[in-house]
């Protein structure tokens, strides 16, 4: 059976095509105003890569923050549900899933059969998600990738007092004036996000294996801060953005 999964994220839209549980193709595009059109575009891109057409797909599952408005999908899956399903499918030993996207961060505790025990979310506040690194990297004039990498070169940990992404920007301007290195500033930002995320992860409970997914899992600086805060090494899928979409496609197959 061929199914598709679409994850409508706040910054990007992800689509995957699954055949009997195997990933055939995946596609990621930036989001915009016309969600429905873009969802179709993301899906068409994935279909093209899989050399399939829409009529080959039996079911389409959709998840993400804006998922309610996609009419051509026949199964809607909550973000938490899709994350857990996708994570456990690829990494059966995982019991705690941490998902950090552009605008939201969440921690999920699940059972071996994919039942969700607990979850905690930070939403509607930029300080606990990817947008924070984006605005801070702009403030010190680095690309998001450079910002992530330079963080590893930090020699000292500086606490960022501001708990708001806007107020943190003025604090960072102050740090620049005080000649603080970019590496230390980047680390301070990643430590700040990590502190909030790990508090959530601890609240839901840390299993033996913790999986980090979402676009921010590619940020090596944040991963380093998280590993330190959680006192373990988080597992990261090769393509961490697509776990939610895979979960949605798996749910659609049921």
């Amino acid at each position: 059976m061929i199914t598709a999964g679409i994850d409508m994220g706040s910054a990007t839209i992800k689509a995957v095509i699954l055949k009997d549980g195997k990933v055939l193709a995946q596609n990621i595009i930036d989001t915009g105003r016309e969600k429905e059109k873009l969802a179709k575009e993301a899906l068409d891109g994935a279909l093209k890569k899989a050399k399939l057409s829409l009529s080959d797909v039996e079911h389409i599952g959709v998840t993400g923050v804006g998922y309610k408005i996609i009419p051509f999908a026949d199964k809607q899956v909550t973000v938490v549900g899709a994350d857990a399903k996708g994570a456990l499918y690829l990494f059966p030993s995982v019991r705690t899933v941490i998902d950090i996207g552009a605008e939201e961060g969440r921690a999920i505790k699940c059972t071996p059969d994919g039942r969700i025990v607990d979850f905690a979310i930070n939403e509607k506040c930029a300080a606990g998600a990817g947008s924070f690194t984006e605005s801070m990297s702009r403030a010190i004039e680095l690309s998001v990738q450079e910002f992530a990498k330079v963080s590893l070169e930090s020699t000292q940990s500086i606490p960022l007092n501001a708990q708001c992404a806007v107020f943190a920007e003025s604090e960072v301007v102050g740090l620049i004036h005080a000649k603080t290195s970019k590496a230390d500033i980047a680390r301070a930002v990643h430590d700040g996000i990590s502190a909030r995320i790990s508090a959530m992860a601890r609240t839901v409970g840390l299993g033996k294996d913790v999986l980090l997914i979402g676009g921010m899992a590619r940020n090596v600086g944040l991963v380093a801060s998280l590993n330190k805060d959680l006192e373990l090494e988080v597992m990261i899928p090769k393509e961490p953005e697509f776990i939610g979409a895979i979960g949605a496609a798996l749910s659609a197959a049921e």
């Binding site: 505790k109 607990d118 979850f119 708990q163 909030r196 508090a199």
Partner: peptide, 13 residues
């Protein structure tokens, strides 16, 4: 930081 500080005493669910 209360949201996060109080989390240990307020386990989810």
């Amino acid at each position: 930081k209360l949201k996060y500080l109080c989390m240990p005493c307020k386990p989810a669910g």
